[in-house]
């Protein structure tokens, strides 16, 4: 079971590093033409907001993406989720939150570096402070002391957002094995991020993938069945996840 997970994780890291070019920034936000139209006749159309714009998501690899989406779906329901559920049953929630805190703390350099690259120096400073406070007072990051006692909150930044900040578009949509929804820009970003994460320098070889696998299971154990909800409610879960992801990232780049 564990070996399979590791193997799959190894698989996931290979493609995210190799051969993805940043060439095609094909996604453009276009104003919806509906906004320009005036209401017809007696029908009162609900007015559109000025920020109302429509993203035409570029998804030239849709058939391949759907294949990987299917694979991830099966992986989720038959492997990751059962493991996470057993783990959730065995380990009390505060411990799992502490584990998540440790991983988050080890990922601090990602946020420090990328806040800095985007010229958000106060965020970078906050993240640096958080790293020192949580590593020392928070006992190796087990506790988010910076948030709980000093009200210094985490601000997510990553390489994908930095690239977006400098005008690089998302490119086309990608579904990565195990890692899930991504796009060309974020696939590159994810790879770079993994090199800015201290986990990469603390563990070598197989152990690294084991640790990453454990992080994923721990995160899933704290998740409130988000994916199950989407599967149940959406007309087409693939489209729902794709569009939610692209919107989510677009919003992250802006903030």
């Amino acid at each position: 079971m564990k070996k399979l997970l590791i193997l799959l994780l190894a698989l996931a890291y290979a493609p995210s590093g190799a051969g993805l070019d940043l060439g095609s920034g094909a996604v453009e936000a276009t104003e919806t033409d509906a906004a320009a139209d005036t209401p017809q006749g007696e029908e009162e159309m609900f007015p559109f907001d000025e920020e109302e714009e429509q993203y035409s998501v570029s998804d030239p690899l849709e058939p391949v993406n759907r294949g990987i989406f299917w694979f991830n779906d099966k992986l989720y329901f038959y492997l990751l989720k059962p493991v996470a559920r057993g783990y959730r049953w065995a380990v009390p929630e505060p411990w799992r939150v502490a584990v998540q805190n440790v991983f988050s703390n080890l990922a601090s350099p990602v946020r420090i570096i990328n806040a800095g690259f985007q010229g958000k120096f106060s965020d970078a400073g906050n993240e640096l402070t958080r790293f020192f406070v949580n590593t020392t007072l928070g006992i190796g990051g087990l506790f988010d002391t910076a948030k709980d006692h000093f009200d210094i909150r985490k601000h997510d930044e990553d390489t994908g957002q930095t690239l977006g900040h400098y005008g690089i578009g998302p490119g086309f949509y990608l579904v990565l094995p195990i890692l899930g929804p991504s796009d060309v820009r974020d696939a590159v970003g994810t790879f770079v991020d993994s090199r800015e994460n201290l986990v990469y320098y603390l563990f070598e070889g197989w152990t690294y993938y084991e640790v990453k696998g454990y992080e994923k299971v721990n995160d899933l154990s704290l998740d409130k069945d988000t994916y199950e909800g989407i599967k149940k409610d959406a007309l087409d879960p693939y489209l729902f996840v794709r569009d939610a992801y692209m919107q989510y990232r677009e919003n992250k780049v802006k903030n």
């Binding site: 993203y55 569009d243 989510y248 903030n255």
Partner: peptide
Amino acid sequence: GVSLINNYRTSYQEI
């Protein structure tokens, strides 16, 4: 950051 309506719109338009 994900608008429910925007999300539905893209999916529904494609359908």
